[in-house]
Design a protein around this nucleic acid. Structure first.
Length: 496
RNA sequence: GGUACCUUGCCCGAGUGGUUAGGGAUCGGUCUGCAAAACCGGGGACGGCGGUUCGAAUCCGCCAGGUACCUCCA
């Protein structure tokens, strides 16, 4: 399958034509969530960005195996709580089984992603379910001589590795430099070199998540799961590996080192990294404590540390999705109510037109409106490193045409009308993954019926030129945050 | 301190060596009993200073401001 898709590769720092190793099959691995807390807006970014990649590759006809892990073994905490991992800590604090915590947040993650219409990956492996694979890979690295055992823990020997393979090719740093800039953390006396990282860590007695291994009862190091599971399901070298930019170092860098050490080859052809979502120009992150969970966006309330309300109104999942897609995945995206409200309005306008396009009437022999040009522009945009903002800009061009035809100011022939509807189907629904219903949860048949009665009464009043009654109905409803919209085909209503 | 990146109109956000991004807001118009909604249209920009070039917002240099990574983070 020949196409013109270009992907920006973080490894080469440039856009490269996409050539899968085993077309039409494509292997893609994306770092998933650590399930010890609710997903926030930052988690939505990679999920949606790589959902876009997944959808577009499938649209192009590739058979994609998309692997996104669930990290339920936790990463080590480094501050005061020496060597305890995040899941275990949360479990201990809440007096739960660690797997109970992981399951709870995994369920909630899935629920939030479903709302955002993020497709489930082909395989969603759990780190805890692949301890054996991780131990095997650690052993392989030991056998190759790139790791050492110290007091039951296994560490990766970066100095040794760096002599044969440059360490730092992804993040652009070099070994000597790192020696000078790495902070000395306590509890790292076992390491031969402060930049070395753990492949296997011996568990302290209080540590509740532990597995037997040739070296100690313990748990795998921070980066093992992705290497082991990526290799298991996608092979020693696979096409695409994605994740947040903040994972580039040390996580992805270490993945490369581990895989090269174990298998002697680069694990990934195309490294893709989404940029961060910022809030007030600063990264939204768990450690910074400035994150807003997705449920809080959906419900419309979040108090910051100072007790200030940060969210002016509830935002539907599709508003969030559209907001994220309106920026390119490699740019930072700043959260603000103003930006979100603008996204909401734009999204509604797009969907209104998509709906209207379905009932447009074709006119025989109408002058061409060059819909094909818009279609081509959308493909060009996607082929240029998944440029969803340009796709959306072009879709609004189509929106303008729909509205012009709807207003009777232009005609469209049957062929182009079909093309227009296909454009919306392909790009709005299949590729961008937007869905139509943006309405907040069901108003129900009862309210619908009541509203219809009220609207009918007002319609009668207006027919009688009884403006007092008609305006009273409109004003009283407005006080209840119900807006009446008088259109050519009658009156509709919306709660805001 | 090291490395990388960013700075676009009122706001958000694309992009390009010469030609309209787009959305929101605003303004004008259509529609309306009036309004709202909806739709159409217009205006408005590339941090500062130099340089390369016929021509730069786009390339190069310097300056200013900002961010990310260097510690778990999407």
């Amino acid at each position: 399958m020949e196409n013109a898709l270009y992907i920006y590769n973080s490894l080469s720092r440039c856009k490269q034509p996409f050539k899968p190793l085993n077309a039409p099959h494509v292997g893609m691995y994306v770092c998933g969530p650590t399930v010890y807390g609710d997903a926030h807006l930052g988690h939505a970014r990679p999920a949606i960005s790589f959902d876009l990649v997944f959808r577009y590759l499938k649209h192009l006809g590739y058979k994609v195996r998309y692997v996104r892990n669930i990290t339920d073994v936790g990463h080590l905490e480094h501050d005061a709580d020496e060597g305890e991992d995040k899941i275990a800590k949360k479990a201990r604090l809440e007096n739960l089984e660690p797997m109970e915590v992981a399951q709870y947040y995994t369920n909630r993650y899935h629920a939030a992603m479903d709302k955002l219409n993020v497709l489930r990956p082909s395989i969603e492996p759990h780190a805890s379910g692949h301890i054996i694979e991780q131990i095997a890979m650690v052993q392989k690295i030991l056998d190759q001589g790139y790791a050492y055992v110290e007091n039951g823990s296994v560490y990766f020997d970066i100095e040794k590795y760096n002599k044969e393979h440059p360490y730092g090719i992804l993040s652009g740093r070099n070994f000597e430099e790192m020696l000078n800039t790495t902070r000395q953390l306590s509890g790292q006396e076992e390491k031969h070199n402060p930049v070395d990282f753990a492949l296997w860590k011996k568990a302290e007695p209080k540590h509740i998540m532990r597995w037997p291994s040739p070296w100690s009862d313990g748990f795998p190091g921070w980066h093992m799961e992705c290497s082991a599971m990526g290799c298991k399901y996608l092979g020693e070298t696979f096409d695409i590996h994605g994740g947040g930019m903040d994972l580039m170092f040390p996580h992805h860098e270490s993945e490369i080192a581990q895989s090269v050490a174990a298998n002697g080859k680069q694990p990934v052809v195309y490294w893709m990294h989404n940029n961060m979502i910022t809030i007030g120009g600063q990264k939204m992150g768990k450690s910074l404590g400035n994150f807003i969970t997705l449920d809080e966006f959906f419900n419309g309330s979040h108090l910051n540390a100072k007790g200030e309300e940060m969210i002016a109104q509830p935002y539907s999942p599709m508003t969030i999705r559209f907001f994220i897609l309106q920026a390119h995945y490699r740019s930072t995206l700043d959260f603000s109510n103003e930006a979100l409200q603008a996204a909401e309005k734009g999204y509604n306008r797009l969907m209104e037109a998509v709906k209207a396009a379905k009932s447009l009437k074709a006119t025989d022999g109408a002058q061409p409106l060059d819909i094909q040009k818009i279609v081509d522009a959308c493909y060009d945009a996607m082929n240029d490193d998944f440029n969803s903002p340009i796709v959306i800009a072009n879709l609004f061009e189509a929106v303008r045409i729909v509205n012009t035809v709807k207003d009777g100011k232009a005609q469209i022939n049957a062929e182009e009308l079909a093309l227009l509807n296909k454009l919306f189907q392909d790009f709005v629904f299949d590729i961008l993954g937007l869905v139509e219903s943006n309405a907040s949860e069901g108003s129900g048949a009862l309210i619908d019926g009541l509203m219809q009665t009220i609207i009918d009464i007002r319609k009668q009043a207006r027919a009688n030129k009884d403006w007092a009654t008609s305006d009273k109905i409109r004003d009283e409803l407005a006080k209840l945050h119900i807006t009446l919209k008088d259109g050519k085909e009658g009156t509709s209503w919306v709660v805001d």
